[in-house]
Design a binder for these strands. Structure first.
Lengths: 151, 151
DNA sequence: AGCCTTGTGTCAAACGCTTGATTCTCATGA
DNA sequence: TCATGAGAATCAAGCGTTTGACACAAGGCT
């Protein structure tokens, strides 16, 4: 049996799955930023608004964990979005120190406009792949996430 | 036929392909950073060294384009790696202003150690998926990249 | 009750990257 | 030949994020 690691360092490292993954994600993210810019919104803002929309009333720290960023990063984004009147911070009924996050009407409208752009990109991709391949891809990506998470 | 966009903003946006893509990439990247940290190397350093290894002698600006970052970011990384003695800048024979990038012996050794870690992660993922699914995933990701690039 | 652990939010400093503008070299064309 | 344009590198400034440290509130424990 022939060892395939005689090469001191991986040539052929270019067509690894993780490289393809990185490039695809980078391309998608870049496109999202480009399309979102005319709306005066960054991808991070959209992600945060969408998260708050899907689960209203969650705290900044909890939000930080889900987005895999630090609480300070969330606080920074929240402060900006609050300044625009798209997001509001309310005091938690039990824990006075904690502050729940909720969308304002303006926030919902901004999210709706942004989501139209994002959904359009998503549609373009899924149509390019076809429904079967899209489902396949999503399944495979989920398996990768799970595999990596409990590595 | 029932329209599926009656909802003002995408519920079910959580299981979009691009979200799965983002989460998978984030998980992989995080794992790489964790495993690379004990070696005193960041993922960006590894990527740069690998790029220079696969194509020795290329310029900083060209490298920046391939990695989708700015020339300054590359210059910053190069300066650091040069300080460690893992990378060296030589004057281009024709264009004296341009500087070719080459790996030193220490750089090759550091890259070899780092690549062992990265290859191990790659192996863990591909084994978890199986060879057929791995090839499928890589193909699908390539198609996504291509679809997005000329969007 | 009092202590202590957990979790949240905030401040300050450092780091990394991007944007913008400048300088320098080499190549091309009048 | 000289001028003009394109590409590469560098400097300066600004922004966003991470890291580290601290204060505060609620629940659990002896």
């Amino acid at each position: 049996m022939i060892r395939d690691d005689e090469e001191p360092v991986g040539l052929g490292a270019l067509d690894r799955v993780t490289w393809a993954l990185r490039r695809a994600e980078l391309a998608v993210q870049t496109l999202k930023e480009q399309r979102l810019r005319p709306l005066g919104m960054a991808a991070a803002h959209y992600t945060l608004l969408m998260s708050v929309h899907s689960e209203p009333g969650l705290a900044g720290a909890e939000l930080a964990r889900r987005l895999n960023v630090t609480p300070q990063a969330v606080a920074s984004l929240v402060a900006r979005l609050e300044g625009r009147g798209q997001l509001e911070r309310r005091a938690h009924p039990r824990h006075r120190h904690v502050q729940e996050l909720h969308l304002t009407d303006a926030g919902r409208e901004a999210l709706r406009a942004a989501d139209q752009v994002i959904a359009d990109i998503e549609r373009h991709i899924t149509e390019g792949l076809g429904p079967d391949e899209s489902a396949q891809l999503r399944t495979l990506l989920e398996r990768v996430s799970k595999t990596v998470r409990d590595a």
